[in-house]
Design a protein around this nucleic acid. Structure first.
Lengths: 199, 199
DNA sequence: GACGAATGCGAGGAATGCCTCATATTTGGA
DNA sequence: TCCAAATATGAGGCATTCCTCGCATTCGTC
């Protein structure tokens, strides 16, 4: 619907403002009027481009999801081409996930922990995770060091372990444990699991 | 405030109804009127015992948290007394977490993924997790088979790995992977990590 | 510069849901 | 039995927020 340059700018302004307001005030306290005000446009304009408040949330979430997974997938593709040592690969994967979560963590928290994302968005998120798991699975089958019985299950466990570990760690950082320690520990654990004899 | 038997029953009825309504309709679509109706009491009675809608949510969440962690802690105490083989212990731990999450999963999802739990409740949840991690840490130090460099970090990783893995698995079960496969995989991974030489 | 299409405006209608309060009923003890 | 305290009731006030709609402004084009 937005064809002129001006209207695209409006849409972007609305999304940027929405990101700020959601981040600062949480889901419930975010009103369309506030978003419009912060964006420097009127509510009318907002409703020209988004049918309702949740549509803005959904757009933000989908962008976040897609950008994030695109990044990680890119990284995996590189890994598949280069075939670096398994340890290095795992470390890169964990670090990528950390970068992903450290980008706008508070917005991330509101989007994925607090807001009532409609089920199709949650489904999309899970689909992306599963795609990622598939790629990891292929990577495991191809890698000479890796030695796994059922790559699918192993890949699922790896992806979800890293994802949720990093998620917890970045969004609710425990004192006494820094990112390096956590990364090392996780990498060591995964490495041992992937290279153990007899599986 | 509730002193007579009758009022205690009212409070319980409200909580039970709230659990049902939150589970069925999600956080946003849950109204105090609906809760009262379902509980078979009037809104006025509801507001006699809870200052607002979120207070009901908080009570439910705290009960859920406390009951859950009490169960797992009990299990850990047993383990500490008996000192069973590490593999058996890990398996029991994972299974306990699954049981925990399989009890009212949809309510669990609404409470912890969708509802805007006030920060003190989230903090309490993290505190409980950390307490759990401490106990696991002590358990690791005491267990003859376990061989870990920094029990605190390892315990943190174990607790969060299992918790979030099970959380994802139970709340969003992937097809192609059943609970047994997941459990086995997780237990194997943790076991290798804990018993590997040189750490 | 003039005209139609695209975009922007913002006061206010409409709906919703939280919560109060004046009143009614029940309970337990004296 | 009777009374004061405890408990229960539910219509409706109040505040909030979502969203519409009629009109103003700007843009691109001829």
């Amino acid at each position: 619907m937005p064809t002129q340059q001006r209207s695209k700018a409006t849409v972007e302004a609305i999304l940027a403002a929405a990101a700020q307001v959601f981040r600062r005030h949480g889901y419930a306290a975010t009103t369309t009027d506030r978003i419009a005000q912060r964006a420097g446009v009127s509510v009318g304009s907002l409703y020209q481009y988004f049918p309702n408040k949740d549509a803005i949330l959904v757009t933000l979430a989908e962008r976040h999801i897609d950008a994030g997974f695109a990044l990680v997938r890119l990284l995996l593709r590189e890994a598949l081409a280069e075939t670096p040592p398994l340890a290095a690969m795992l470390r890169r994967f964990v670090l990528a996930m950390i970068v992903l979560h450290e980008h706008e963590p508070e917005l991330h928290r509101v989007l994925f922990e607090e807001a009532p994302l409609p089920s199709h968005v949650r489904r999309r998120l899970r689909e992306r995770e599963n795609e990622l798991a598939s790629e990891v699975s292929r990577l495991l089958e191809a890698h000479p060091e890796a030695c796994v019985r059922s790559p699918d299950v192993t890949a699922y466990v790896i992806v979800h372990t890293v994802d949720s570990l990093v998620h917890s760690f970045v969004l609710h950082p425990p004192k006494d444990i820094d990112a390096d320690m956590m990364t090392n520990e996780a990498v060591r654990m995964l490495l041992r699991h992937l290279t153990a004899e007899g599986s």
